[in-house]
Nucleic acid binder design. Sequence first.
DNA 1: GGGCTCGTTGCTCATGACGCAACATTAAGG
DNA 2: CCTTAATGTTGCGTCATGAGCAACGAGCCC
Lengths: 258, 258
Amino acid sequence: MSNEPEPGPALVQSVDRALSILEILARRRNAGVTEIGRELGVHKSTAFRLLAVLESRGFVEQAQERGTYRLGLGVVRLAGTVAAQLDLSRQGHEVCDRLAADLGETVNIAILDGNRAVNITQSRGAASVTSYNWVGRQTPPHATSSGKVLLAFAPESVRAAVLAEPLERFTPATLTGVPELTAELDAVRSAGWASTSEEYEVGLNAVAAPIRGAAGSVIAALSVSGPAYRLDRTAFPEIAKRVIAAAGEVSGRMGFMA
Amino acid sequence: MSNEPEPGPALVQSVDRALSILEILARRRNAGVTEIGRELGVHKSTAFRLLAVLESRGFVEQAQERGTYRLGLGVVRLAGTVAAQLDLSRQGHEVCDRLAADLGETVNIAILDGNRAVNITQSRGAASVTSYNWVGRQTPPHATSSGKVLLAFAPESVRAAVLAEPLERFTPATLTGVPELTAELDAVRSAGWASTSEEYEVGLNAVAAPIRGAAGSVIAALSVSGPAYRLDRTAFPEIAKRVIAAAGEVSGRMGFMA
DNA sequence: GGGCTCGTTGCTCATGACGCAACATTAAGG
DNA sequence: CCTTAATGTTGCGTCATGAGCAACGAGCCC
């Protein structure tokens, strides 16, 4: 009945539906009861009731017109408590904006979320050709430069968990063998930076370096990405110097002492 | 059965419980299944199942130890879509940090949320004595400087809604009469700034000015708050000049043309 | 090893979620 | 102003889903 097939264990259906509503509103910005009901595949009265409880707790609110709903500030309040991530993104944004303006490419900060990499900030340069917003998006760690940095400096248990799963192929260049990825991560730890050459997306290259926290451990990765014709393998070492410098600056702001 | 009495219409109980879990985790940062069940007043297996669906959608995640849950990045993703607020907070932060450093007090930006004022940013100065984090917290508009600004420049229907409810008294100084509050809001509109003198909290004074958006309407309020012994009534006009200037700068960044 | 606590799962049942139908509200057109 | 259509909201009845109980497994401590 749900428009999202659930091959896993049965979930509390009504809660699942309510969460779907939040995601619908995140995507659409505004929507009415009937529209939400249609998209969810439930009767409008069900949609209305689910919205009522979400509204009573501030997760959604009604816009000026009657019956048009949008996400509410309860969501922002919740996010506000995920303090570490928001702090990192705030400290890193200015540095990333500067680097993006300098290089003209897209600069992201990513953190490890379970065994996935998640982008939490994005700064675009003038020459940036991508309109894609990576913020909040999960990426596979073995195929992205940020992911490789996060993996290389993660606890062994995290790395083992990632290596225990089949490594998905995205392009002909994706590293999918455990020995080659292991060797790559060893090289990342030695060099202090990582790269991806059309391993996640054909035509997309990136270079990343680790951001450290006050305790000295790697807490995030800062990456520069751009089209392969501009961000060419031969340019990687030079770009890496810049990326390492920027990541170092963010590290300093996070309390890291070199 | 819920630890939150619901005098209003019946809500979808299971969804209400799931949302309560999110709020418990927002408050506690980490919690186990049994603990959450206890606090929610439900059996731990119920808590577990509610957590399972929240986890499947990324709203919560398990920390390293098995069975310890915390808010997940799904929440940050959702908040990321409330673009207008986050944009305002990002544009305003630098200005607020500067003013806070200058004046030594606490600087906040607040927006109107229904008929409440909600703080969305906070910058602290060196002399700031408050460790209280106002971000995400709702305050009564009639008793706070930000609230008065937001009310004064809000549509008449919003003002009428606030004035139609009894105005709660927080201190002996709180304005609780409709005629006196109406007069105060008239004065705010004339002066272009608002203040509160121990009306919300004994010993706490604040001055606020409006932030305008590209369309010229007031979209937020920027306030400076501090202890009454330092932020004294006689200093209000001088402080107001600084607050108006900072609010004007944020307004410019939001696209407002004076 | 035993005891305790917590997380997870299977089972059962009754109650709460949900769909239907009716009513209320709003907007647009004649 | 009236009519129509669309959408939001509410009451009712049904049954499937949510929820509690009990059992089991895992981990930790003595």
